[in-house]
């Protein structure tokens, strides 16, 4: 399964912000870590802001904060903002009415169902734990989840 760049950026941004509850990061801070332009990331943050997942903080030292509940917000909540969650059902066309088309749709629906169940069962808090495990597995001391001053994504 491949996610669009915007979707991946949205997940990364939420993970960064959720690790710093009550603090804010600028799009430049996040963009620098993941090697993407602030312009692209700003569009992504705007979509998430409209969905209530992040909130912007204006003024000096402003940026974005996570506005959701890390134990309730799932990856699916983020992914659905950028990806078509019902790709199989929207194909349409005459071929869908054939037995071959219906058989193919059944198989693809199975894949979609599993993907939705997976994404819908992993919260941002669970992802943070997974991130920490990977960080630890790489032999580095994880600092994720600790409050930090805005503007610093250095390990």
């Amino acid at each position: 399964m491949r996610l669009q760049i915007s979707t991946q950026l949205a997940i990364f941004a939420v993970l960064e912000l959720a690790a710093r509850e009550g603090q804010q990061l600028s799009v430049a801070d996040i963009g620098e870590k993941y090697g993407v332009s602030s312009h692209h990331l700003a569009k992504v943050m705007h979509v998430m802001g409209r969905a209530g997942l992040v909130r912007s903080v204006r003024g000096a030292g402003g940026g974005y904060q996570f506005a959701g509940n890390a134990r309730r917000t799932t990856l699916l909540d983020v992914v659905q903002l950028f990806e078509d969650a019902n790709s199989v059902e929207q194909d349409g066309g005459a071929a869908d009415a054939t037995p071959e088309g219906q058989a193919l749709r059944q198989v693809l629906s199975e894949i979609d169902d599993i993907a939705r169940a997976t994404l819908g069962s992993i919260t941002i808090a669970t992802m943070r734990k997974l991130v920490d495990r990977h960080a630890t597995g790489n032999g580095r001391q994880s600092k994720a989840g600790r409050p930090r001053q805005r503007g610093s994504l250095a390990p």
Binding site: R71, T74, A117, G120, S121, I122, T123, A125, T126, K129, L130, R133
Partner: peptide, 9 residues
């Protein structure tokens, strides 16, 4: 249950 087991790793 899925959320729970996932949260447990």
């Amino acid at each position: 249950p899925l959320l729970f087991f996932r949260s447990e790793g």
